[in-house]
Design a protein around this nucleic acid. Sequence first.
DNA 1: CGCAAGCTTGAATGCCTTCAACCCCAGTGG
DNA 2: CCACTGGGGTTGAAGGCATTCAAGCTTGCG
Lengths: 249, 249
Amino acid sequence: MPHDAALVATQQPCHICPIKERAVCSHCGGDELSELESMKYYRRFEAGQVVVWAGDRLDFVGSVVSGMAGLTQQLEDGRTQMVGLLLPSDFLGRPGRDVAAYTVTATSDLLLCCFRRKPFEKLLIDIPRIAGRLLEMTLDELDAARDWLLLLGRKSAREKIASLLVILARREAALIKRRPEGRIAIELPLTREAMADYLGLTLETVSRQMSALKREGVIELDGKRRVIVPSFQRLVLESGDDSDGGPLS
Amino acid sequence: MPHDAALVATQQPCHICPIKERAVCSHCGGDELSELESMKYYRRFEAGQVVVWAGDRLDFVGSVVSGMAGLTQQLEDGRTQMVGLLLPSDFLGRPGRDVAAYTVTATSDLLLCCFRRKPFEKLLIDIPRIAGRLLEMTLDELDAARDWLLLLGRKSAREKIASLLVILARREAALIKRRPEGRIAIELPLTREAMADYLGLTLETVSRQMSALKREGVIELDGKRRVIVPSFQRLVLESGDDSDGGPLS
DNA sequence: CGCAAGCTTGAATGCCTTCAACCCCAGTGG
DNA sequence: CCACTGGGGTTGAAGGCATTCAAGCTTGCG
């Protein structure tokens, strides 16, 4: 059972939680928050660990507090596609479903703030703010999935890589309510293989395109897992779509 | 204004509505239903017509009663990807957002059951069943989008075509609560170009693969827009994933 | 040191695209 | 009546981009 591998971690109070502005609980007031506080528990996973396998029972839901996880789907012959990327504040699990539809893997050290599923489902009925926030988040995820469809269906390998870096930079910046510009650094809590699974490429192609972007000065590599971007605008240009990334919500 | 092009159609009472089992309104009881009934109005679009352009104001939401529409997204240079396929009972529009994020085009003659957005948003607060159903539908759409990611990222052209046919057959069958098997017919309310935009291919590749599947007896063509499948099982096999399509929900 | 995991780079192959010609057919007007 | 036209569809040939297969590199660690 993969759950046994999870470490229960010391909890932090909600009022100093780094994701309190964006997670499912973000619309909650004092009373509601203390109810949540009494129910929550933390789980920690190490990079590479599987949180659940597709098809296995999943009796909790939760929010990513820190770190990153990927949802993946497979075809019979082993071809793998990442179908979801869980970053801090993202929600894991589906209310009303007791079996995981996708395999969830920690791509970096991961901290989850969890609730047992049944009690959480009751909260969804009792506290409409939570259901409302979850709907909003699900709609946002659907929009993100749709951008991703465009990426997979129509972008070149080079544009795909640039797009991924843009997404990570924007998400990282959004947590501190900023908007990336100029010279920035991006953490890459993903192996080349995970990037390939995200982008619908092979790991060799990812590696080659990273090298190409580096050769041309679009990015600099600081180790394998940290990227310096001299000009964020330039990177966005390379990503194919120059939408501005929408409102800072 | 594209809206002017829409024809207002004669309404049918909700109790004989073909999508009453699956649409946003499906969990509503008598009182709620009559409230909805007093607010709803129909709009009709012809095949090829644009319902809204991305970026334009959208003051209504609604359900597809019959026909089919596509949501599309574009890159600056014109590359186009379909990012949503609206079939009967699917929901159009996003509560809380007044500007369309995607261009919506009728790919066949289309009938929508609409509500003005503001009053509908009030309903979402007043009638939790509606909000609940919308959450459920959004989660289902997210799952569908994730299957689509796998399709775009990892499937061959041939598998993509087969997968699309499987999806259409399943959706068509789900409306009458059945499950496709054996010899079946599938309506294809899509041009080759729309299929290509859905699948992340060129229309030539779509045409070639359709011809190949026909040559090998996997499908038969009855005109350009109707496909006969001698063995649904065989088609599923060609689609790459042989999951059974999940529960009949 | 030596091993393994993750990553990079090279060469050859293949799948899908691109560009182009042609077909089919419904609608239109001389 | 039938030639004309245009949209949608099919088919062919050539080329390109990403994959596949393979070798070698880098780095952390027992």
